[in-house]
């Protein structure tokens, strides 16, 4: 074998297993999901082509609209809580005179490494209507906000979304914090000489420079919200009724509980399209120009 042939053989050995594996397990199933969304299929017997019927059925299904709305609420809560709080805490921590920065950062990040099931179960007892932590805090403060958080029609999805926002805020914090640390010191000098106040300096200088990071944060928060499943599965099982449904929950229920694989595929196809739309939109609207220092 010539050395060129040996090189090419090595190239195949290094790339083909990974590419093949990825194609079979990820890419082909993605295509199949879209394809099967046009079929009536129970996963066992041969599928029958029914054109757009699954999609038409989605449009008339109350569960679908509730799921769509809940996905957006979930995404909204994640964006506001994680990015808002992440920004404020990261800016405060970026101040070099703060002691114990490592301690603060670690504390905010710890919930991220917990299992979502543990966090969901923990918050079930926090939200517990009879003497749960949250209601106990309200009664200790003499406030009259006690309620059944997880089963209330207007509180359920917000309470569930907050659980997820609470758990994963640390991710956004670390991303924003790292981005702030990479901003060169000299950009702040003029503001320092002018004696501009702390928060104004950051509002005018830091935040505009975080465009690229915010873009990424927005994408993970929004797609994370649209994809939500685990929290409601453990905390409310989608209920009461369908008030805490999401598209993934719908897909799970249709395919794995009712055996309607085609209908479930249509729900997950919509989910992917929704995620892609938001990703494209964010790329178009946020931080179109790359910043280099």
């Amino acid at each position: 074998m010539t050395s060129r042939q040996k090189y090419n053989l090595a190239l195949l050995v290094f790339t083909v297993p990974t590419l093949l594996f990825f194609t079979v397990i990820v890419i082909v199933p993605i295509i199949q999901t879209f394809q099967k969304s046009f079929f009536d299929w129970d996963g066992l017997t041969p599928a029958t082509f029914i054109g757009m019927d699954n999609y038409k059925r989605l449009l008339t299904d109350d569960d679908f609209w509730v799921s769509l709305k809940n996905g957006l609420i979930f995404a909204f809560v994640l964006v506001v809580y994680q990015m808002g709080l992440g920004t404020i805490l990261a800016i405060a921590l970026s101040n070099k005179s703060i002691r114990g920065r490592k301690f603060f950062k670690t504390s905010y990040f710890i919930p991220v490494v917990l299992s979502g099931v543990v966090v969901s179960q923990l918050w079930i007892s926090i939200y517990n209507a009879d003497g749960g932590l949250l209601n106990s805090i309200f009664s200790a403060l003499g406030l009259d906000y006690q309620q059944a958080w997880l089963s209330g029609e207007h509180t359920s999805i917000w309470a569930i979304a907050f659980t997820n926002a609470w758990q994963n805020m640390g991710v956004q914090l670390v991303l924003i914090y790292t981005a702030i640390k990479s901003i060169p010191e000299h950009l702040y000098e003029a503001a320092k000489i002018d004696g501009a106040p702390f928060w104004k300096t950051h509002w005018k200088i830091t935040i505009p420079l975080l465009g690229e990071t915010y873009k990424f944060c927005l994408i993970i928060a929004i797609t994370g919200g649209l994809n939500a499943f685990q929290n409601m599965f453990v905390m409310t099982n989608g209920g009461p009724g369908n008030i805490s449904y999401t598209l993934t929950f719908m897909m799970y229920k249709a395919a794995f509980r009712s055996g309607e694989y085609g209908y479930g595929s249509a729900a997950s196809a919509i989910l992917v399209i929704e995620c892609l739309l938001f990703t494209i939109l964010i790329n178009k609207l946020v931080a179109r120009e790359k910043i280099s220092y």
């Binding site: 397990i25 990820v26 999901t33 797609t223 499943f229 799970y252 997950s268 989910l271």
Partner: peptide, 9 residues
């Protein structure tokens, strides 16, 4: 790509 999309296939 959200991982759940491949679950059925």
């Amino acid at each position: 790509i959200p991982m759940q999309i491949i679950l059925i296939p």
